[in-house]
Design a binder for these strands. Structure first.
Lengths: 223, 223
DNA sequence: GCTTGATTCAAGTGTTTGTTTGAATCTCGA
DNA sequence: TCGAGATTCAAACAAACACTTGAATCAAGC
């Protein structure tokens, strides 16, 4: 965390991240950013030139820090698990676990996920280049892992499976504010995060017709 | 379509919808809205009072027009299918089909889905009331249908399954711009929409351990 | 203690924002 | 043909916007 370079610069990035995630780039003024971290209004232009450039610096950092490398790591020791359906299922569980870890269980500030959703919703061409460099590689690795889980799977099928995994998880991030205003919905506590992890893993494992690991077996008469 | 009341009013709503969906409310000026439909700038304030009110009128209309009533309809003739696992599977397929129909295959303008995603991402308290009135009822019906598919399912489990269904589908809407800039991704044509429909249905049916309807059986050696 | 470069600050730039205003125009029944 | 209500229009409003400026302040090496 090389913060010693300039503490205001880091403070601006953090404050901007929180505000961009909550209200969007257009909905956030540089005055609001500066006030949030008790900096001068001119500090934004001094450190980043323009508001847009601040945004680009910010999302590059967020995308670098939130890469999901589990799938890539798995592909490097493919021979250890790819032949064994049960280990494939466990590999899937590990990937889902890592994604949930990134955005829910405190590895990163809570607003990282929401900012990531905003980038997905409205990726400018400039952002597109950063994405292709960082995010798409992780996505390709994920598709490779999924192809190992079901030999003979086509490229198009693996994309559908990757979409299923990502879609089920991102849903909780980008619709969080809506879901939490539904009466009776569970809060995003540890128990809920664990239930999401188990549920999504089971959906994928059963969908890919893999054997269910023992620790994911459902206990009967739980209600 | 009582458009004869005021054609400019309708034109403003449509133009605003397209722009809000693309650039967000904060990222859209009333000048841009007026220019898009060749209306005067003051027309927005004449017909809607404020920009925020225009937004509220718009989202109320969008949410009213895009309700997914299939689940509610299914629950009204529950005795016709709920006892038969195969018919449960077909009911699920019908619900997924309706959702895809709403946002992909031309029932509504293309920007409806994207605007819906923006509402989910950032629901103001005022919007929350509209949501609870319209959207949450559909969501409750969906959960009821899912509970029928697996007798003994708890309320919490049915919520997880509903999230899985919604999450997999909304993913294609809110991440559309990103997904389409991934090299080699399929465009959102009819073939892709059908593949999404079949894939998501299969994932849910296998996940809920229901029998697979004949028309969803996968043909081997398709690659 | 002085110099130099980096950083902060208050005040200002011009532009764009949402909104208002009052006159002009349109619509249509009497 | 007239008049009244609905709608449109160009012009203007203050406030907020991103960004700039030049002086003040700071930290550190000599």
């Amino acid at each position: 965390m090389e913060q010693s370079v300039s503490t205001t610069k880091e403070a601006l990035l953090f404050a901007a991240g929180e505000l961009f995630a909550e209200h969007g780039v257009e909905g956030t003024s540089i005055r609001a950013i500066a006030e949030k971290c008790q900096a001068n209004i001119a500090a934004v232009n001094y450190h980043f030139g323009t508001k847009e450039n601040l945004y680009h610096v910010l999302i590059r950092r967020v995308l670098e820090k939130t890469r999901c490398r589990r799938a890539e790591a798995l592909m490097k020791r493919k021979q250890d698990w790819a032949h064994d359906p049960l280990k494939c299922a466990e590999a899937l569980y590990g990937i889902v676990e890592e994604h949930i870890h990134q955005y829910f269980t405190g590895t990163h500030p809570r607003w990282y996920g929401r900012l990531f959703m905003r980038i997905l919703l409205q990726p400018t061409p400039a952002i597109g280049e950063i994405m292709s460099e960082l995010v798409m590689r992780d996505f390709d690795s994920l598709k490779e892992v999924l192809r190992c889980c079901r030999p003979g799977m086509s490229r198009e099928e693996s994309e559908l499976w990757a979409d299923s995994l990502i879609g089920q998880l991102t849903h909780y991030i980008f619709a969080e504010d809506f879901l939490l205003m539904v009466p009776g919905r569970r809060s995003y506590d540890e128990a809920f995060q664990r239930d999401i992890l188990h549920h999504v893993s089971r959906v994928l494992i059963r969908g890919l017709e893999l054997p269910m690991p023992a620790f994911l077996m459902e206990r009967k008469s739980n209600a």
